[in-house]
Design a protein around this nucleic acid. Structure first.
Lengths: 105, 105
DNA sequence: TGACTTTATGCCAGATCTGACATATATTAT
DNA sequence: ATAATATATGTCAGATCTGGCATAAAGTCA
């Protein structure tokens, strides 16, 4: 893993510890973190595409501007659940987020 | 929404309330619940494909059999985060779960 | 049948997440 | 430059989630 990437993640608030510990981040952990960051990027892109401010989006989902900022920055205190719920609130479809088949109803 | 679907969700522990309230479940809420159930189904399919019991999987991810059972049944007390982390622990790739582009590193 | 394995359900203390607030730092327009 | 708007960061009480335990129910096999 590149040092630049470590710096980027640490800046986002992920407590990595020393380099040794960082290098030992398991693939699962990296996949999870990168999933969150990718969802965060998707959220920001959609919000901006709709011309909404973070305050406006916060009102729509009944949250706060600070939480929206944290969602979009990939803050470790934000769950994938919150990101997914927010993307749905913006009108994104399930197929646009997940590679999941229908429930076969 | 079909009555049969309501029954199925209520059996899983989703507190829907009366029919009126159920009918008012927003699209976002339905998308969210169905996303979780789809991930739950995916998890069970992968675990069984690998020939693992819930106990074995619980050991791998350092959790408990009961939590694995709840994950696979779409229990409301299980987060998408936990489902995603568990899928990654089983070796599923990000692309297999999300329609997300790489972070462009 | 009954022993054995697996999965499901209920519960709870401790851990994590959330909304909200305050405040700081951009960014934009004049 | 400075006012106005937008975004970022820190904190915390209350809400939600998690692992683990106990126990029930369901499935498997001799």
């Amino acid at each position: 893993m590149k040092k630049s990437k470590q710096k980027a993640l640490e800046k986002k608030g992920w407590k990595i510890g020393d380099t040794q510990e960082f290098l030992n981040l398991s693939n699962e952990e990296m996949e999870y973190i990168e999933s969150k960051i990718a969802l965060a990027n998707k959220l920001r892109a959609y919000r901006e595409k709709k011309g909404l401010s973070q305050v406006h989006l916060a009102n729509i989902i009944k949250s706060s501007q600070s939480r929206v900022a944290k969602m979009e920055s990939g803050d470790p205190t934000v769950s994938i659940d919150l990101l997914v719920k927010t993307l749905y609130a913006l009108g994104i479809s399930r197929k646009q987020i997940f590679n999941l088949h229908s429930l076969g109803q």
